[in-house]
Computed example of a mutant assay.
Amino acid sequence: MTDPKSKLNLVKFNRDDALQGRHILIVESSESKRAVSLNVSVFSIGRHPQNNLPINDKMVSRHHATIAWMRYIDDRERSHYAFWIIDGKGKRKRSSNGIFINGKRQTLHKLNSGDVISLGNNIKITYQYIPHNPENDKVLQYWDREKTHYTPVRDTNYKDTMVLDNSEIEETVLSDNYYDS
């Protein structure tokens, strides 16, 4: 794309988009690790407790980043849809310390599966896209059964979430009961 900013449009993330696959943020800090599903058109990240993803870190701005479902036009004038991350609230309201995608400071970036977003002192957010296909359906069905709904509450911060280590996750996913259901 020659000028991505002029060819981006915010669009509504709808049921058909959700049926294509899952968009997941894996949020890691020194105190916790959790997964958050992206299933809305605009998703806010920052220190303020009313963000979709509140982060308790002094180096994170009150509204540090926005993730938005956008329609964009490629060089061949074809439309595509993807989540894009924006520093702060956009051009007029950037975060104080910026966002780093895969180690490089960015103000606007189309998220690709595996991208690592760094915020503040020690916050690492990995974006993963898991398409619906026969290979992934068992894992996605498991997540649907086992998920707990996360709703930001004014007095809650990320340190209050449950921490799972990799051995617990592997034990749950690889258990015989998982594959028998």
Rank of each mutant, 00 (worst) to 15 (best):
Q50G: 14
L108M: 14
H149I: 15
I73S: 04
K138R: 03
Y129F: 12
V163E: 14
A65P: 03
P134Q: 05
Y127R: 00
W84P: 01
I117T: 02
L164T: 10
H132M: 04
S79V: 05
M162I: 05
Y72Q: 04
P134Y: 15
K124I: 15
D155V: 11
S95K: 00
Q106N: 09
L25E: 01
Q128E: 08
K110T: 10
K5D: 12
R62E: 01
H48S: 10
H48Y: 08
D75A: 15
S32N: 11
R22L: 10
S29G: 13
K58M: 12
R92V: 02
D176R: 05
W84H: 07
M70H: 04
Y72H: 15
D16V: 04
S41L: 10
D160F: 13
D144K: 12
H132W: 13
D144P: 03
F83N: 00
A68D: 02
V163I: 07
V173K: 03
Y127Q: 01
R76V: 09
T2L: 13
W143C: 08
M70R: 13
K93T: 06
R145V: 10
A68V: 08
N9V: 09
N112I: 06
L10N: 04
E77Y: 13
G90Q: 08
K5P: 09
I125M: 13
L164I: 12
T66Q: 06
E146H: 03
Y158N: 11
R145Q: 15
K110G: 06
G88W: 00
I67P: 01
S167W: 02
Q128V: 06
H132S: 02
D17W: 03
N122D: 11
F100W: 13
L53S: 07
D75T: 13
K159F: 05
L140A: 03
P4D: 09
S175K: 10
M162V: 12
R76C: 10
I99G: 00
Y158F: 14
V42T: 14
H64S: 09
R47C: 00
K89N: 09
